[in-house]
């Protein structure tokens, strides 16, 4: 293990949810530690990245920001393929935004190509007056078997933890990701054919 410590995994993360719930702000908070009270509405899809350390493993997160508007659905869903994780964001000061998440859950089911994509539900803007009790968000996450966390892009609360938990979970999910080197979990070993008088060698793959 120690020999392959510095190899980097690349993970693709999606941010989904109604427009204005703070997706772009969460990404800005996470990647730059910054916050802007006024931030232009995302057009279509945007991209950011950050390198993260998980269990001594360097992981490159490619983070795809999406526009939440109805009209952008076709465009944004075409970027879902091969995502390892999705962050579903709602605004704790606006109950409708949580209800709307159902639509993205359905879309994820249709458009993701990884069967065991890991999802995290984020209740954002907890610095504001709350209109959605935490339990509602939790119940939603539980129903769909997703991770759950509350955050504020404004105060940075929960932002790092959100990405950490998601990444950790992805790393723990077998068959979802792959180290970015030839050192994969499929090992090809030169195995001796131990048949009678076998002087030939056989290559076998064992899949963890």
């Amino acid at each position: 293990m120690s020999l392959t410590m510095d190899c980097v995994a690349k993970l693709k993360i999606l941010l989904l949810g109604e427009s204005g719930v703070g997706k772009s702000s969460i990404i800005l908070a996470f990647t730059k530690g910054d916050y802007q009270a006024q931030f232009p509405a995302t057009i279509g899809v945007d991209y950011n990245h950050k390198i993260m350390d998980v269990n001594g493993l360097k992981v490159k997160l490619g983070i795809w920001d999406t526009a939440g508007q109805e009209r952008y659905r076709t465009l944004t869903t075409s970027f879902y393929r091969e995502a390892h994780g999705a962050i579903l964001v709602y605004d704790v000061s606006e109950p409708k935004t949580l209800a709307k998440l159902n639509e993205w859950v359905e879309e994820l089911q249709v458009y993701t190509t990884n069967k065991n994509i890991v999802c995290l539900v984020v209740g954002n803007k907890i610095d504001k007056d709350r209109a959605v009790p935490r339990e509602h968000g939790q119940a939603f996450a539980q129903k769909h078997r997703m991770l759950f966390i509350e955050s504020s892009a404004k105060t940075q609360e929960g932002i790092h933890l959100a990405f950490e938990e998601l990444t950790q979970k992805i790393i723990e999910t077998p068959g979802l990701w792959e180290k970015d080197t030839s050192a994969s979990n499929i090992r090809v070993t030169e195995e001796e054919a131990r048949e009678q008088g076998g002087s030939c060698y056989e290559t076998t793959c064992s899949i963890k």
């Binding site: 180290k179 499929i186 899949i207």
Partner: peptide, 11 residues
């Protein structure tokens, strides 16, 4: 029981 992720097509 194999789950294969992230490897290229040929692999």
């Amino acid at each position: 029981s194999a789950s294969v992720g992230g490897v290229d097509a040929r692999r």
